[in-house]
Amino acid sequence: MGPGVALGVLVLALGTYGFRVSGPLLSTRITLSPKASRIMAVAAVVMLTALAVNSALLDGRAVADWSRPSGVAVGAVLAWRRAPLVLVVLAAAGTAALLRL
């Protein structure tokens, strides 16, 4: 690994740390309006949902086979029904594995 790569990793690490520490430090100094707080809460849910759908439906740049979205759907239903996390993960992985056979 060259010095340029090490410097790049260091800069990214410091930037990530700065973003993470800025939340707790600024939360006492900045107050959001109730409307802005609701928008932020909804935006977080939308972003996480988009990430989950993207990961479930795409494999790199191609569309994933049916086993992955089916496993995610089984896991989502079980999570919605408040099943234990271990059961959710095992059922989702088992569904995907069985469909890949």
Score class of each variant (00 low, 15 high):
2 G>P: 05
5 V>N: 03
6 A>T: 01
6 A>W: 01
8 G>M: 04
9 V>P: 02
9 V>Q: 04
10 L>A: 13
10 L>K: 10
11 V>N: 06
11 V>P: 05
12 L>T: 03
14 L>I: 07
15 G>T: 04
15 G>W: 05
15 G>S: 05
16 T>H: 05
17 Y>I: 10
17 Y>M: 13
19 F>T: 08
20 R>Q: 11
20 R>I: 12
22 S>D: 05
22 S>F: 06
23 G>V: 03
23 G>R: 01
25 L>P: 06
25 L>Q: 12
25 L>T: 15
26 L>R: 07
26 L>Q: 06
27 S>Q: 15
28 T>D: 14
30 I>E: 08
31 T>D: 04
31 T>L: 09
32 L>S: 07
35 K>F: 13
37 S>K: 03
37 S>G: 01
39 I>Q: 09
43 A>L: 03
44 A>P: 00
45 V>W: 02
47 M>H: 07
48 L>W: 03
48 L>G: 00
48 L>I: 05
49 T>A: 14
50 A>T: 15
50 A>K: 14
53 V>I: 14
53 V>A: 10
54 N>R: 15
55 S>Y: 15
58 L>C: 14
59 D>P: 11
60 G>R: 13
61 R>L: 15
61 R>S: 14
63 V>M: 13
65 D>C: 11
65 D>W: 12
65 D>L: 09
66 W>Y: 07
67 S>E: 13
67 S>T: 08
68 R>K: 11
69 P>I: 00
71 G>H: 06
72 V>T: 12
74 V>I: 15
75 G>H: 00
76 A>I: 10
76 A>M: 12
77 V>C: 12
78 L>R: 00
78 L>P: 00
80 W>K: 10
81 R>S: 10
81 R>G: 07
81 R>T: 11
81 R>L: 15
84 P>F: 04
84 P>C: 02
85 L>F: 13
85 L>T: 10
86 V>C: 00
86 V>A: 04
88 V>S: 01
89 V>H: 01
89 V>G: 00
91 A>M: 04
91 A>S: 10
94 G>V: 11
95 T>H: 09
96 A>K: 04
97 A>V: 06
97 A>C: 02
97 A>N: 06
98 L>W: 02
99 L>V: 09
99 L>D: 06
100 R>M: 08
